[in-house]
């Protein structure tokens, strides 16, 4: 019989268990948290650049300073904002219907 024994067996077992824990608990949870973070970030960008939706902002001059640092995320953000039909549409994703 071949296969891991002793410390090697324990190591494999630990890896499997951690994988199981990661798949069942860690990953779905971090997915939710990450989406929550994305939602918050969307609100942040929305508050910084309401001009993109035709709402004029009294602070556009100051928030323009941030544009170079959010430029990469801006395209994706705009798509997300325009496509979001309801709060449920996005929140629903976490349940994997």
């Amino acid at each position: 019989m071949t296969g891991p024994r002793g410390p090697a067996l324990r190591e494999t077992l630990r890896e499997w268990l951690h994988g199981l824990y990661h798949g069942m608990i860690e990953h779905p949870a971090s997915e939710k948290i990450e989406q929550e973070a994305e939602d918050l970030e969307d609100m942040f960008i929305m508050a910084c650049f309401p001009d993109a939706f035709g709402i004029s902002s009294p602070t556009a001059y100051y928030t323009a300073e941030l544009l170079p640092y959010v430029a990469e995320d801006l395209a994706a953000w705009e798509r997300r904002m325009w496509n979001r039909e309801s709060v449920l549409e996005r929140k629903g994703h976490q349940y994997h219907f």
Partner: peptide
């Protein structure tokens, strides 16, 4: 602001964001 933009992002993005900087 435009100088900082050029340091941060690729040339393709620059044009689009440039317009927004001008508007502000």
């Amino acid at each position: 602001t435009k100088r900082e933009l050029r340091d941060q992002v690729s040339a393709g993005l620059v044009r689009e964001i440039d317009a927004q900087i001008d508007m502000a």
